[in-house]
Nucleic acid binder design. Structure first.
Length: 684
DNA sequence: CTAGGGTTAG
């Protein structure tokens, strides 16, 4: 080892920090002990403390500090800064007060660390004290100190203090403005954020990538499509076109403004993409109801060797949940375990939600109980799983546990939506009404649109359509589409075309373009034999230019998804499918199945009606499942619309004949068929 | 030795 000067030793310590090499740091320390006399000079000990603290070795850092008799504010600040950078905020503040006890005055480097620690801990009381010190010393006039104090007040919710500080600042730089704009967004004041960005430009400020990202966040939050679009020009002129973070911001912004095409454009034009780019693209697809595309992008990211971060994993899990992609969901769960992110509360909640929405309540339960930490979202995800399955008793038990257990969660708005919806799906009218009526007093939650819709659904599903209508008439708010939609659905099921017409008219007024409502209404008339009315509705749809989304069912076999429409004969194994259908039809007839032609949508001869309901997409998908999925395994089918009554009874017969479990997930619930029975309590 | 930021869950 050549002779090392203090300067070269310091350089060694610095490179240990920049390469995050504790080994190099310790070696340099050993060399310092060997070559230099004790006690340590403050120059080298400052560097040593800095190195240990930055490399998250707080014990060693404190030890060196304690051995340094000539320690100064720089030594202490090196220690505190490292603690803050590594997230040890409480220790950082404790060290800060130890320093004060030694009568060492904090400087313009120390204050920002103390403010950041207070802000991160959401401790305004602490922050205020630090602020007092900074004012007394006159340090508050420093840009760094002032900016971090402002940030602290914003993040701890002391809005007035923050504003005063900002207004009184003697000097502002780009960081100050960025802090102002970002905190306005965090505070839910996007308008303010946009205005201050314009003000910043007006005073001649030159935005950087952080300013652009903050501005885009404001635009995403408030759906300011035009301002965000216009930013593109400025970004190019400022030379930030190739900035990855800014592009990521645009992907997110366009996605949230439902301009998914623009998101894709930005994404595919990027020269460099990082894991956030991929994650933003996945999320943008999920937010635009393109779950399959979200999964495709995710799979592509795997091929590109992108790290499966907690962010990406939770995003893609929510996509799986939305389209019941159990197979992919399971493999993402496995991947999460492999990548050591399954303990993350976002990921864990998404896993619980995914299993719940895919109908695997036991897996959801297991994931829920295995989580190291649970928050309100996790509990609600579990409740949502019970709601999906109509397990009102389980949902209620969980709500009790949540309320009276030693948990740190308090039921909120969504919690009550989940519980009420569990009741409505279980047909537990009395229980549901009791919960609804007591929610304000017992849980302190003001009923909202979703709760009202649950009650209408609860009454409607139980056949009390008139009572549901009376309930709607007494609502303190104007009924929404979900409320009238619940009534219309019930009228269709229970054959109440007059009331259904009222619900439908209200729906058309609120949302004239929605195809679903027209279809339900037309189907309701058709089921009641009111063919003329049914035809009128269909004609109206045509006139206004409403296209009915095609009904389809899909089934996942091995790793591919097979989609079928009604009367579909396009599959490559069509002849086998037809043979299976014919065989089933014979055996079902022997077992006593009678086609229910009131689910035919057109006024045809009886024979034609029978044929129409027989070739519904779910039956074709089921036939394909029977010829491809090995015996013993359940067959899972997903349908984008609601399963019809004839298919429901047909699949009951089929489950008995073939002796297999068949699960159908339609757009409103799960149907688990086994031994000729179905788990649901629905009527058609 | 210091301040501002991007994507996630019901």
């Amino acid at each position: 080892m050549p002779f090392l000067t203090p300067n070269s030793l310091a350089a060694l310590l610095e490179s240990a920090v920049s390469t995050r090499s504790a080994l190099l740091g310790r070696a340099a320390h050993a060399q310092i002990i060997k070559t230099l006399d004790n006690p340590l000079s403050s120059f080298l000990s400052n560097h040593l403390v800095n190195m240990y603290s930055k490399l998250d070795l707080p014990g060693s850092a404190q030890f060196v500090l304690s051995l340094t008799p000539s320690r100064t504010v720089v030594t202490w600040t090196a220690l505190i800064a490292g603690f803050v950078q590594n997230g040890h905020f409480v220790s950082a503040l404790l060290q800060f007060s130890d320093m004060l006890r030694e009568c060492i005055r904090p400087n313009d480097f120390t204050f920002p660390c103390a403010f950041k620690a207070s802000a991160s801990l959401r401790m305004p009381v602490m922050g205020k004290q630090v602020h007092g010190l900074a004012v007394k010393d006159g340090q508050i006039r420093d840009v760094f100190v002032g900016c971090s104090a402002f940030d602290m007040y914003s993040k701890t919710g002391l809005r007035d203090e923050a504003r005063k500080l900002f207004e009184e600042m003697p000097e502002r730089n780009i960081v100050t403005w960025n802090a102002y704009i970002s905190n306005a967004v965090l505070d839910g004041r996007p308008r303010n954020a946009v205005d201050s960005f314009i003000e910043f430009l007006r005073v001649g400020g030159e935005p950087d990538s952080i300013t652009f990202c903050a501005f885009l966040n404001a635009c995403s939050d408030a759906s300011y499509l035009e301002p965000g679009r216009q930013l593109h020009g400025l970004v190019i002129r400022s030379g930030f076109e190739a900035d990855v973070s800014v592009s990521n911001g645009f992907i997110d912004f366009y996605g949230k403004c439902r301009e998914i095409g623009s998101s894709e454009m930005v994404f595919y034009k990027m020269g460099q993409r990082n894991d956030v780019s991929w994650c933003s693209m996945v999320t943008a697809h999920v937010q635009n109801d393109e779950e399959e595309k979200a999964c495709m992008v995710f799979l592509q990211s795997r091929e590109e060797g992108i790290e499966p971060t907690d962010f990406i994993v939770s995003s893609v899990l929510s996509a799986c949940a939305a389209f019941s992609g159990l197979e992919l969901g399971r493999s993402v769960h496995a991947l999460a375990v492999k990548a050591c992110v399954e303990g993350n509360i976002f990921v864990g909640s998404a896993i619980v939600d995914m299993y719940g929405k895919c109908g695997n309540i036991n897996d959801a339960k297991q994931a829920f109980h295995e989580m190291p930490k649970r928050n309100l979202i996790t509990w609600n995800a579990m409740l949502g799983g019970y709601a999906h399955q109509g397990h009102a008793d389980m949902a209620l038990a969980l709500l009790e546990e949540m309320t009276f257990g030693s948990n740190e969660v308090v039921p909120n708005y969504v919690t009550l939506v989940c519980v009420l919806s569990a009741c409505s799906r279980a047909g537990a009218v009395k229980m549901g009404m009791e919960i609804f009526e007591s929610m304000r007093v017992k849980y302190g939650i003001e009923p909202g649109v979703e709760h009202y819709a649950c009650v209408v659904d609860l009454l409607g599903r139980a056949g009390m359509v008139e009572r549901a209508y009376e309930f709607i008439k007494k609502l303190p708010i104007p009924p929404t589409t979900s409320i009238w939609g619940a009534l219309l659905g019930a009228c269709r099921v229970y054959g109440k075309p007059e009331l259904g017409k009222i619900a439908a008219d209200n729906l058309f007024e609120l949302d004239p373009k929605d195809s679903g409502n027209h279809v339900v209404l037309s189907n309701m008339f058709a089921a009641a034999g009111m063919w003329e009315e049914a035809t009128i509705v269909r004609k109206e749809m045509k006139d206004v230019g409403i296209k009915k989304g095609a009904g389809c069912s899909w089934i996942s076999v091995k790793n591919s998804v097979h989609v079928f429409q009604a009367k579909d004969s396009s599959h490559e194994r069509n002849s086998e499918i037809q043979a299976m259908l014919a065989k089933l039809r014979r055996e079902m007839k022997e077992a006593g199945y009678v086609p229910d032609t009131k689910f035919a949508l057109h006024d045809l001869e009886e024979e034609e009606k029978i044929s129409e309901v027989w070739y519904h997409s779910e039956k074709i998908a089921l036939a394909y499942g029977l010829i491809t999925i090995p015996p013993g395994l359940p067959i899972r089918i997903i349908k984008n619309l609601r399963i019809c009554g004839d298919c429901h009874s047909a699949i009951k017969f089929i489950s008995g004949i073939v002796g297999r479990e068949i699960v159908v997930r339609d757009n409103s619930r799960f149907h688990r068929f086994k031994d000729g029975q179905c788990s649901c309590r629905d009527y058609w």
